[in-house]
Design a protein around this nucleic acid. Sequence first.
RNA 1: GCGGGAAUGGCGGAAUGGUAGACGCGCUGGUCUCAAACACCUGUGACUUCACGGUCGUGCGAGUUCGAGUCUCGCUUCCCGCACCA
Length: 1031
Amino acid sequence: MEYRPSDIEPKWRKWWTENSTYKTKNQGDKPKYYVLDMFPYPSGAGLHVGHPLGYITSDILARYKRQCGFNVLHPMGYDSFGLPAEQYAIQTGQHPAITTEQNIARYREQLENIGFSFDWDREVRTSDAAYYKWTQWIFIQLFNHYYDLDADKALPVSELVKHFAQSGNAAVRAVCDDDTPNISASDWNAMSEREQQLFLLKYRITFPGEEYVNWCPALGSVLSNDEVKDGVSERGGHPVERKLMKQWVMRITAYADRLLEGLNTIDWPESIKEQQRNWIGKSVGASVKFAVEGFDDLSVEVFTTRIDTIYGVTFMVLAPELDLAKTITTDEHRNAVEGYIKWTAARSEIERMSDTKKATGVPTGAYAINPANGERVPIWIADYVLAGYGTGAVMAVPSGDQRDWNFAKEFNLPIVPIMDSQQDLDTAADAGKDGRYINSGLINGMTYAEAVPTMIKWLEEKGIGRGKTQYKLRNAVFSRQRYWGEPVPARWEGDVPYALDEKDLPLVLPAVDKYLPTETGEPPLARAKGWKYELSTMPGWAGSSWYFYRYMDPHNTGEFCSKEAMQYWQKVDFYIGGSEHAVGHLLYSRFWNQFLHDLGLVPHREFAQKLVNQGMIQGRSNFVYRAKERFFEEYLMIKVLKPFFEEVGPIEIKGAEFEEEIKYDFAFETNDLVIEVTSIKQVDKIERIRKSALEDGKRLMVLYTEELTDHINEPAVIAESIRAALASREDFIVTSKQPSGEQLFVSHSLLYKYSPETVTKIHVDVNIVDNDVLDLDKARKTALFANANFKLDAEGKYTCSWEVEKMSKSKFNVVNPDDIVAEHGADCFRMFEMFLGPITDAKPWNTKGITGVSGFLRKFWSMFFEGENFRVTEEAPTRDELRALHTCIKKVTDDIERMSMNTCVSHFMIATNDLRSLKCNKRAVLEPLVILLAPFGPHVAEELWHLLGHQTTVCDAAWPVLNEEYLKTDTVNYPIQINGKLRANLELPADISAQDAEKAALGLEIVQKWLEGNTPKKVVFVPGRMINVVV
RNA sequence: GCGGGAAUGGCGGAAUGGUAGACGCGCUGGUCUCAAACACCUGUGACUUCACGGUCGUGCGAGUUCGAGUCUCGCUUCCCGCACCA
């Protein structure tokens, strides 16, 4: 019987739903396993074939684990707050909830179509009030806690208040704002309620602060750093400016060290961990104060990771943005400094980054005193120093730092060596740490390891500096001036924010008349009637920072997740998603998780033990080539005129260079005939050339490009009209009155003959292209080709060129999984995606190989049938059949465990090919094979499983157990090597002794030939593997 | 510049230090067919040889080893991430 996925697949999907096959309970005697996909944002474009790659992988793993006896949690949901829905709402006035709902319905349909084993009863949506109630609840917890450095965890702010009332803030070691003053208990107690609340904000883990943010006026929103690429918004490419705004901020920096440490405990891809380490950017060093000459109350504080180089300081540099720069500038330099500040402010980020080689800067005229040696060094301002990092000032050590060196060279500042190992300081700085210090007072003669603690100790004793650890990580801005997000559960009393009471949650997103900011620039929530709460909403990462817990207990109305559910599922065992979330979602969710763990609300410091990044599936774009006028000229030359000249003898042509001043495109000197190629629409041009021809006494022939388009595949027709023109005595010849063709598209396979500038390259929808050949019937129905003609190659085909690009609508290379499923079936689609290559690799989508997988499924199916009848026998299997089966069990089991899904598919193909050549149709072999296939092709497996007489789902069929005995063979085919090179093969008994094997190998004629009568130096025998004779 | 990863036929890709190129696509030839598609069978790294066979071959150059795609060292190229981060 024929394998017809379109019949069996919908049938089983319905059956699975009706039988609640994928419903998971939070209990049981089985061990648990939690497989999680990064949930998608439901965009209007729907899923393309790249999205399911990770879902298929996790689905295979989930089904496999279930068959291995685990209770598997494999949920799916939607990260359904986000910018695109809101943009759409602004344009159309439609509420984002409605479009989001529609998009989710589409996603659901597409996901269902692929046969995933998701437990849909556990679906979550971040935009659901029942869900974001708990996002808001967590926000309130963050507001009500501070980070205590002694406890090394978050503690309630109420504890802090007690401390303050008793002994001020001196005794509390906690993470707080840099500008937090020391207060005594009496100071605290003397404060008003307002003053106390404002003071506490300096400690709360989330708090409103004045922050420089990435403000995007076009989107009316604040963007996070990772939403900004090259100075413009990642979405839409709108300009982004730095703006100081009142924003809710998350004190993620409190967790910097723990987020860094935690990376060592989890099995995540090295590249993700490295990106997070970079982002956190821990640097250990020291901060030092340099006194400024003439300002008793002023000093320049710098942070350095190389305090050991302090004796090499020959100047100091401040970031131009620093207010201090203006303060210390002498009158003499004021004009230059102000000019420079203006100039740098006007330069865009991109300019600054692309122009990093050239050092720019101006002196302030002020001098600092190096505390180490008392030397007087000039203070400059320069834009190579960033205001946002450290104190915005550096001590410049040109001998040890390349940027300082560049600057010193540019402005002729001294370069003092500080280590005996430093060389070639004329050509570059030497940042090496090997060697002994010179010119370095206190630390002369020391090594790096000795010098650093010595200097720090000295600084601390003198009270001019201290050891300090600095992080690149900034506190995370948590406000968005947008509508479609979680309302922040806070209200304001004057300038003091108060969190809502938990019992007032959820704070439901109110209705508004428009989704735009107000005329006064306030966020859209200001439009809501009677809204007396915070106006900004939460960013996209809020809801996605804890969703993995909600899946454990999705309908709980009393807690975000019950203790029991948490106790049962613990954490995510396997997490899969794209690497683009490396520092967004994956860092923030680790932060929230650490916090929740401090509160004893979740069992582990890290929520996901293992993480895998699936590679991106890139689009494979196709291109067509539209002819320009120049193409027809070259075409005339190559196809028509050249053969013609060969016939009637050479005719000189001029005007082939197409320069502006040349009047004619083609001129036949000897015949006084000018041939003009132009569009029928170019009436003016024809008239102009006609006049010139008349004046010159030449005859003119006009060939319309449209006419050439009509006859492009018949050069003889065109040659005939030229022949006729030559013979005629007419002055002005137009060969065709009404050409029909509008545009010509030239097959890519013919373009090598023509100059590249004769055609325009245009994206063509990949869905009307098959194996790079354009489907002309389908093409003619599209607008692009409505009035087109095609120049086809010798086989009558139009070939397109191709390129690998990102899969996107604008590139017309989006492939919808539904189309593949409709054509080949969901099982084939699933297995083909796996077969493309290792899941972690990026690869272009190319359906070329899909027939191989489709053929495999048909062959697999046919093993169970004889003609139209299902026929499986109860006969005992042979050794060969058992070996094929158990080889497959071994390979597939091993390969799923190591996430090598592509080779699993190969093993199924091999087993099927082997068993088919053995004509095996025995239940004892085929039934275990169906179980093995079930995670990959669940529909076909379920169908065959039921045909085999089972009533319950194949999902619960126990994974077959490997019996190593069946893998053994009586004889082994040994490769015989001479000096490591293969020379012969020898069939030997599997249990042969080393001596016998050696003897047998040496007995071979070919081995004797290579030995040339000598005795071998050595014979290497690896049992079951190979024999190597060393000559 | 720093960090991470990769490089194997015409293509996607396989190979616990042990027969390089599994499996699939594509291509050759054949069977079936009036024909095509499907299906089935055969061959398929390069060079060389009538043939048996031989030589070369996993980006380049060394090394370790009886034996290297795999391990070590030095390069080249490409991809990804970070980037005047003091």
